[in-house]
Amino acid sequence: MLVRKPAGGQPNPNFVQCVNCKKTLFTAEFEASLRVCQYCGHHHRLNWRQRVAFTFDADSFVETDTGISSLDPLEFPEYAEKHQQAQAKTGMVDSVICGTALLDGRPVSVAVSDFHFMGGSMGSVSGEKVTRALERGANEGMPVIIFCASGGARMQEGLLSLMQMAKTTAAVELCRTRGVPYIAVFTDPTMAGVLASYASVADVILAEPKALVGFAGARVSKQAQVHKAPDDFQTAEFVFRSGMLDRIVPRREMRSTLVSLVRLLGGHLHLEAKKVG
């Protein structure tokens, strides 16, 4: 069934269609269920604002590092145009937003990747923001929560993008030495250069159901060994069975799961903060 359209051709704002099962949903119910289809359970992709609103204490998110923006260091064909289009489409400066927020009253350092901005790809700016979020957590004793949604490193910044893999991973190492917990959430999709860097070395890894999670593009992997690939290859479920993540968490339980983890793993930080206070 298609989106119900009145005679004028404009979609009726009261209804949306599930991208997976194609059933028609009431917009209000869809939003109330955190954009999860009530029929098939499909978790629709979120933009960063929705993610922040669904996860952290109301109005607690403070965006930081808003002043940095991407250059075109390689003068890569069509990059400047594509980047401007993505900015116009999303209202974002680049694919990652970082800042601080409260989670059940506890301060956390946050980075959220938004797939709608050039596939959430990681270039110099995204890498810098993820690094700053991790460093802020490490330096100020705040647990770090990163929502991943990315096709991988951004080709258009070439080797500079590849270097972000090492840079962000170094910042994870800093968190480890400082005893600051870092939780990564794999959302649809978490791939390639992002998966093979800061995402996979979090202390705790959660994932949304059915999120695409993998190293190589599914086509590349399957081309080589199609007979060996299970039906759910490169999904959160496959990666969970492989022992590469801790829990698959439905969206409506994500906030409470994060609250518990931050309280339990970051308990020592809270005590230290109290002592200082």
Binding site: L195, V201, F215, S221, F233, S242
Partner: peptide, 12 residues
């Protein structure tokens, strides 16, 4: 990039 490498966590 093979299926087995994926299942054993090449990214990790």
């Amino acid at each position: 990039p093979g299926v087995e490498s994926e299942s054993r966590g090449i990214s990790e």
